[in-house]
Each structure stands twice: as structure tokens, then as C-alpha cells.
């Protein structure tokens, strides 16, 4: 019975299952990178530098003769970690601020949201560059840089859902019972603004991964020789003519992962809309 239900779900939600499969493949790749990779991603073998895809090196080798396939597998660890951690940072802190602003209203709302506006008015990449430039190049700093960018987005989204939930009569009914603000937020507000936040988180993970790659590409992400997709693309662009696969493979990998998150997010939006659920 259980099995059939799960099967049913996946046959009915084609795009969702494609998205989940993509994500699963990447997760497996990231977790089992040491087992799956044919070579050490940092081992240089100058004899075979810039050789095309072969049985030994499925995705070819780079300018130092490192196995591109292995580096991509290891790179999944960093990209997925950064993407998810940055979004979690934005989700927890941003939506926390947004819920407080929306529920309290008045001066709290004014101050918090103007702060968010300031953050939002700075172009995303420039803000991230500034953070990394100030704090130095490292994975935690990248997470922070990308997470700060997500703050105002999550704050605005959660605030607007709280504002619309606040006017609902079940909140007033709760107040009439005498329930205090903390419990109203816990039982009613949070539950009801959770689904838009979840959808947005999924979609935003994709952009966070893209931004991580962009930062590395610009030389402000993780320092070389770390195996990171953006960095790989950046280093390979010099050899675009001789070895185009060096750019193509990491870019494809980014593209497919972003696509996977987007597929899940889009489908989640349809599924969690209570109006479409009955």
C-alpha cells in the first residue's frame, strides 16, 4: 500500500520526480565522492595535461593533468553545502526578522524593513564581493556573503505572508480566546507562512549555487586549488579553444543542479497551494 502510494506520487508528478532524482544523484556524488572518483582530485599528472575525455579520465584532464570528473564530484560537496547553508542562514534569520516585523508592526516594522531595503538596494554580487573582500576568502565567508543577500528576500516574503495571515479571522478568534502572541505565532502564523517560504528556499538554493560559482569565477570565492565548479570554469576559460570540455562539463553540472532545484520548487508551489489542494 505504502509502496503504491509513493509510486503513484512519482508517476503523477513527473517534473517533481525528475527534480528529486537530479538532487539525489548530486547528493550521492557529494557524499560518496571519495569512493566514486577514479583519481585524487588534487593529484597533478603533467604527462596527461589537457587531454580529452577518455576511459581513464571520463571528463578529461585540466591544465595540471588533474581528473576533471573527480574534481566535479568533490566540487558537489562545496557547492551544495554553500547553497543550502546560505539559504538556511537567510531563511532562519531573514524570515525570523520578517515575522517579527509583520506581527509587531509599527516602529519595529519600519526600522527592520528599512534596513532590509538598504541591503536590497545594493546589487547582490557587489554586496557579496564586499563581504568576501572584507572578511577574506573562505567557505564560511562565502556562505555569509550569499546568505546576507538572501536576508531581505526572506524577510519581505515572510512579512507579507504574515501581514495577510494577521488579518484572517482565526487570528482574531485566537486573540479572543486569550492566546498570547508567542503561541499565536507558533500555532497559526508560522504554520501558514511556512509553505511559501519552503518553495522560495528551494528556488533560491539554485540562485545561491549560481552565485557561489560566480564568486569563485571572479576569484573571490574559495581559493585554488580547491575543487569548486565556478573556480574550475574560471581557470579553464584560458584554454577554451584547446579544451572546451573543461568549461562545458562544470557549467553543465551547475546547470543541471539549478534545473533540479527549480523543478522541485515549481512543483512544490503547485502542490502546497491550499486552493488547489481539495
Amino acid at each position: 500500500m505504502q509502496k503504491r502510494e509513493i509510486l503513484d506520487f512519482f508517476t503523477k508528478n513527473r517534473s517533481m520526480s525528475v527534480g528529486i532524482s537530479i538532487l539525489l544523484i548530486y547528493l550521492i556524488a557529494a557524499i560518496f565522492a571519495p569512493l566514486l572518483s577514479p583519481h585524487d582530485p588534487y593529484e597533478q599528472n603533467l604527462d596527461v595535461r589537457l587531454s580529452g575525455p577518455s576511459r581513464e579520465y571520463p571528463f578529461g584532464t585540466d591544465q595540471f593533468g588533474r581528473c576533471v570528473f573527480s574534481r566535479i564530484l568533490y566540487g558537489a560537496r562545496i557547492s551544495i553545502t554553500i547553497g543550502i547553508a546560505a539559504v538556511l542562514f537567510g531563511l532562519i534569520i531573514g524570515s525570523g526578522l520578517g515575522i517579527i516585523a509583520g506581527y509587531r508592526g509599527g516602529l519595529t516594522d519600519l526600522v527592520l524593513m528599512r534596513l532590509m531595503d538598504v541591503l536590497m538596494s545594493i546589487p547582490a554580487l557587489i554586496l557579496a564581493l564586499a563581504v568576501v573582500a572584507a572578511l577574506g576568502r573562505s567557505i564560511p565567508n562565502m556562505i555569509l556573503a550569499i546568505g546576507i543577500n538572501a536576508l531581505p528576500l526572506f524577510a519581505r516574503l515572510s512579512r507579507s505572508s504574515v501581514l495577510s495571515i494577521r488579518t484572517m479571522e482565526y487570528i482574531e478568534a485566537s486573540e479572543a480566546i486569550g492566546t498570547n502572541s508567542f503561541n499565536i505565532i507558533r500555532y497559526h502564523v508560522f504554520k501558514n507562512c511556512f509553505s511559501p517560504l519552503l518553495i522560495f528556499s528551494t528556488l533560491h538554493t539554485a540562485s545561491a549555487i549560481l552565485m557561489a560559482a560566480a564568486l569563485s569565477f571572479l576569484g573571490l570565492g574559495v581559493p585554488p586549488p580547491t575543487a569548486e565548479w565556478g573556480l574550475m570554469t574560471a581557470e579553464a576559460r584560458v584554454y577554451l579553444r584547446q579544451a572546451p570540455y573543461l568549461v562545458i562539463f562544470p557549467s553543465m553540472v551547475i546547470l543541471v543542479l539549478v534545473l533540479g532545484f527549480n523543478l522541485i520548487g515549481d512543483r512544490l508551489r503547485d502542490m502546497l497551494d491550499p486552493k488547489l489542494r481539495f
Binding site: M168, Y170, Y187, N192, P274
Partner: peptide, 8 residues
């Protein structure tokens, strides 16, 4: 309708 929390 709106005085009942749809998710409770």
C-alpha cells in the same frame, strides 16, 4: 471559513 486555521 476564515476563522478556522486552514492548517490546523
Amino acid at each position: 471559513h476564515s476563522s478556522l486555521d486552514p492548517r490546523s
